[in-house]
Simulated scan of single mutants.
Amino acid sequence: MLLFVVSAGVPVVLVLGAVTGWSRSVVGAPVWVAWTVAVLAVLVGFPFAWFSTPLGTRSATNLLLRAYRRDGLEAVEQQYLSKLAPRRAGLQLFNLGLALDRAGDQDGAHVVYRHAADRGSPPAMVKLGDRLTRHGDDDEAQEWYRRAAEAAESS
């Protein structure tokens, strides 16, 4: 919620500052600088605000799901997730796995959960452990549960 407030509030304040002349009178910025900063803040801030909401998060997951169905997992990881930190990419992959689960693609979800777990996502490690337990691979499942507990403690 704080990310949403800051991401949406700062651009609004900068635009209001440019419109009212506040940024010129208080900060001493020329009009063109005030407007340039305001426009850049809007272009960067509003997408951050959108993707910090539940609806925006679902939108990002749906984008990954469409790309996965069109191009495959490797393309999704390379095109969309390669610029993210491993933990964040793991979380996005975990969300993709949940979407595949809901869509009934159990095999695809299993592969995606494994990739997310390899990137350090504790929820994906637990989900992978659950799936392995259901398939009778208790030794590997216990290993994933242990790794999930260690990853959760370290964060």
Score class of each variant (00 low, 15 high):
Val33Ile: 11
Gly9Cys: 03
Ala41Asn: 08
Phe51Lys: 02
Thr57Cys: 13
Leu55Gln: 09
Leu3Pro: 08
Val5Leu: 15
Leu64Ile: 02
Val31Ser: 15
Val26Glu: 04
Leu65His: 13
Leu63Thr: 07
Leu73Arg: 03
Ala41Ser: 10
Asp71Val: 07
Ser59Val: 11
Pro11Glu: 07
Leu43Gln: 09
Val26Tyr: 08
Ser59Ile: 02
Phe46Leu: 15
Pro54Asp: 13
Pro47His: 08
Ala75Glu: 10
Ser59Met: 14
Trp22Phe: 12
Ser7Val: 13
Val33Lys: 01
Leu64Lys: 00
Thr53Ile: 15
Arg66Gln: 11
Val5Lys: 12
Leu3Phe: 13
Val33Tyr: 11
Thr20Glu: 10
Ser7Pro: 10
Val39Asn: 00
Thr57Gln: 06
Trp22Ile: 14
Phe48Asn: 04
Tyr68Leu: 07
Val10His: 01
Val26Arg: 04
Ser23Phe: 11
Gly21Tyr: 12
Ser7Trp: 14
Trp50Arg: 07
Ala75Gln: 12
Leu63Ser: 14
Ala34Leu: 14
Ala67Glu: 14
Val6Arg: 05
Arg69Leu: 13
Ala34Met: 04
Trp32Ile: 14
Phe46Ile: 03
Asn62Cys: 14
Val19Ala: 11
Gly9Glu: 08
Ala29Gly: 05
Phe51Cys: 08
Ser23Asn: 02
Val10Trp: 01
Ala67Ile: 05
Ala75His: 14
Val27Cys: 09
Trp22Pro: 03
Val31Cys: 06
Gly17Met: 13
Phe4Trp: 05
Ala38Lys: 00
Trp35Leu: 12
Ser59Lys: 11
Leu65Phe: 08
Thr20His: 04
Tyr68Trp: 15
Pro47Phe: 02
Phe48His: 09
Val37Met: 01
Leu63Trp: 08
Leu3Ser: 06
Gly56Val: 08
Arg66Asn: 14
Ser59Gly: 04
Gly21Asp: 12
Trp35Ile: 01
Thr61Lys: 06
Leu64Pro: 00
Pro30Met: 13
Val19Gln: 06
Val19Cys: 04
Val44Gly: 00
Thr57Ser: 13
Ser7Gln: 13
Trp32Asn: 05
Thr61Arg: 04
Ser23Arg: 01
Gly21Leu: 15
Trp22Met: 06
Arg24Asn: 14
Phe4Gln: 06
Pro11Lys: 06
Thr61Ala: 12
Gly56Tyr: 10
Val27Trp: 09
